[in-house]
Each structure stands twice: as C-alpha cells, then as structure tokens.
Design a protein around this nucleic acid. Structure first.
Lengths: 214, 214
DNA sequence: CAGCATTTAAAACACATGTTTGAAATCTAC
DNA sequence: GTAGATTTCAAACATGTGTTTTAAATGCTG
C-alpha cells in the first residue's frame, strides 16, 4: 500500500477535527491515533493548515456538484419551485456523504461548522472561490421560490440558515445525547435533517418586515 | 483606584475574546493591550478559565433576570401570547446589554457564541445550573404560544434558534462588512436583531411534520 | 539484484502558551 | 509615619505546539 499513511492521517484527522475542533487537535494527537510518525503529516500535506483544507476538500468536492445538479433542475423547471421543494433537495446530497465514509454526513456538517467558526473567513473564501457558481444558482432558485425577498434580506436569511445547520451539527452529538436521555427519543443525523428542514423553510419564508405583535 | 487593574483586564479580555475567540486570545495579548502585568491575570482571577467565566458571568447575571421578568409577564397574562410576542420580548433585554458597556449587546452575543462552540459544554452547564428556572419559564411560555409543539420538538427548535443567533452574532462583524459592501446596507446589531426575529418566530412556529412538497 | 527515489522514523528546533516565583512597589490603617 | 497587607512587576518555569532535519527503511524499476 503506497498511500496508506496519507489516508490514515486524513481519516483520523477528520474524526478528531470533528470531535474537538481544529485548534484543539494537535498533530501529535492525530499521528498517535493514526499510528503514524509525526513528521509524516508535514511530509504528505506540507502543513497543518493544508491538512485541514484537504479534509474539507474531500467532502466539498463531493457535495457541491450534487447541490449544483439539484439547483439546476429547479432552474430548468418550467414552473417556479416553492421553498419546501428547494430545501428538501438538500437532503439527498447531504445523505450522500454517508457513502464517502461512515457517519460522513455528520462529519461533513461538523467540519463545516468548525471551519466556519474556527478559521476566520478561510473556508468561506475557499467555498466562494471554488463553488461560487453553485452558490449563485442556489440564490437564483430561492429567488424564484420567494421573489418578494430582497437580495439583502436573502443574504441574511441564508446566513441564518447556515448558522442553524452548522451550530446544530457542531453540537449535535451532545444535543442528541441530551434529547435521548431527556425525551427518550434517539435521533440520528438523518432524522435530524428532517427535523431542521421545516424550521429552515419557515424561517427563510417568513413574512418580510417587522414582527406583527397582535 | 483599587480595582482598576482587575477591571482593565476584564474589559480588554472581553473585547479580545469577542474578536478572536477564547483559545486564540493569549493572556499576553490581553495584558499588553490592557497595559497591565502578565501575572496579574492569575493573581486576580486564578486562571484563564476563571477569567473567561468572569467575563461571561457579568453579562449573564444582567441578562437572565431581565428575560425572567419578561417571561413572567407572559405567564401571568390571562391570555396566551403568540410566538411573535414571545420572541419580541427578547429585544429589550438584549439591547439593555448596551448599557453595561459600549457595544455590549454585540459583545454578549459574540461571547455566548464563542462560549458555546469553543468550550465544550461548560457554558451550557453553567447556564442550566444557575438560570434553569428562567429557561424553564421560557419553555412554558413557548408552550403556551404553541401548545401543539411536543416537548422534544420544542427542544430541537429552540436549539435551532440558539444556533441561528449564536452563529450570526459570532460572524456578525464579517457578515455585516460583506452586507455593507455587497448591498450598501449598513447593519448595526439592533437592526440585525429585528432582522433575525421574524426568522426565528417562523422557524419555531413552523408546521409540525414532514415538508409538504406541493 | 542493484540503484535510485520515495517514504518513514527519531530527534531536535524554535516558539508560544499558561502558570509560578520572589522581590519591589503601593496602598491601607493604626 | 510606620508596620502590615495588598498589589504589581520582571523573570523564569514547564509544557505543548508546528515544523525541520538527517538518517534509516522501504518501495519501485531496470
């Protein structure tokens, strides 16, 4: 096996990053868990930062084309989709991540959350640079589904959505434990996705303007 | 002035924590910015962890009683509130944080976000231990406003809400810059709160059950 | 199998971190 | 004003970090 070491590092790093965040996961922790030499990380990846990017890239490169495809369908459709249909079309790409690796969906979302909070702006820049077209298609589709929503309001609501997903997933392990012990309901990632989707749809589709208090 | 040093540390630490997160803010950075000696942090607070707690406690101790009061009003009211009214009653306590310090509202929300993501579980435990009653009142009020929502669904939706707020505020500085440059709309914390409230209300109030796709 | 490139290995490096120490300075109270 | 407690200060300590170095081991190729 030629690339065994590189892959062991990648898989172990991914798991530890998701569990503990990037800064709290040292290279020594990764290499000891992966049972490889410390220096091999810098040999194969160059630096820790590049290792982080490699871990994230593996998922983004698989995820984004699927999203792009789903959005293209909505754009090509003769009739405008509604928000429920738009957001529902994220479920399949997300769950597809489970094919990359066991618990891949959870990992991906966890890493996404870590990447957005830990590193300031790097991940965001990487995504916009490499997948800007897909993001733009998504915006167009949402605009078709809710034309009254102004660009700036959409900007904010989509970031609210991102925050909801990322925070939920970043703390999903702990939260799912609490939910299981307090309510006796064992929640896996898939059912959690189907719990959050209605929330997101309603949020993005909320009426525009200040709250009506009566 | 006896407590000048302690307060200088507290104020400087708060600002830097909010800007850069807890782990990325070293004691040396704090003490140099505060123009105090390095050892004074450990002298006055014991450890970095206790400094973090002190910074957060100052806000929570001011914020939570205000929330408690607002929730009590809803509980004492003869008629059940609606969700809009419930969430709108958070605006005043939040904006009240601006009286503790300049940009106090933004700081508080930023620190809350940092605390929830950086330290795993500590902040959550602190809140439930010290302000469990208030949290419970909040749950009761939401239940009055949306009785059909099961406890477990409420659990999740309230955490979705927490995630929305925390993520938005944790990246609000960067996001507000982007929004300002891309859409020419300058957004302060107050107007951001009024942007997010409709999203949260709609999300929590979303219909129960799977998405209806047609 | 010999020779060369690739990969692994152990050790050291350079640096940043939180913390502790002990003396000097400052404040407080009698 | 002076004795005693409190606070500040500079320095060192112990530890953990990412990275680099140099040699050994391994794999591949002719």
């Amino acid at each position: 096996m030629r690339i065994a070491t590189k892959d062991k590092i990648l898989n172990t790093a991914e798991r530890l990053f998701a569990e503990r965040g990037f800064t709290d996961t040292s290279l020594r922790l990764i290499t000891s868990h992966a049972d490889v030499n410390l220096a091999s990380v810098n040999y194969h990846f160059g630096s820790k930062k590049e290792l982080i990017q490699a871990v994230l890239r593996r998922y983004l490169d698989a995820f984004m084309p699927l999203v792009d495809e789903a959005m293209q369908v909505h754009l090509d459709s003769a009739e405008a989709p509604n928000l429920n249909q738009v957001f529902a079309s994220f479920a399949k790409p997300l769950l597809e991540m489970n094919r990359i690796q066991q618990h891949g969906t959870a990992m991906f979302l966890l890493l996404l959350g870590r990447g957005y909070t830990d590193e300031q702006g790097h991940l965001r820049r990487y995504i916009t640079q490499n997948f800007g077209q897909t993001i733009d298609k998504f915006r167009q589709v949402v605009s078709r589904a809710y034309p009254e929503l102004s660009p700036v309001d959409m900007f904010w609501r989509l970031h609210f959505t991102l925050g909801t997903v990322i925070f939920t997933m970043a703390s999903s392990a702990a939260l799912r434990d609490i939910a299981a012990s307090d309510y006796g309901e064992k929640v896996n990632i898939e059912s959690l996705i189907y719990k959050v989707l209605p929330y997101l749809c309603a949020g993005v589709g909320a009426p525009i303007g200040p709250l009506t208090l009566d």
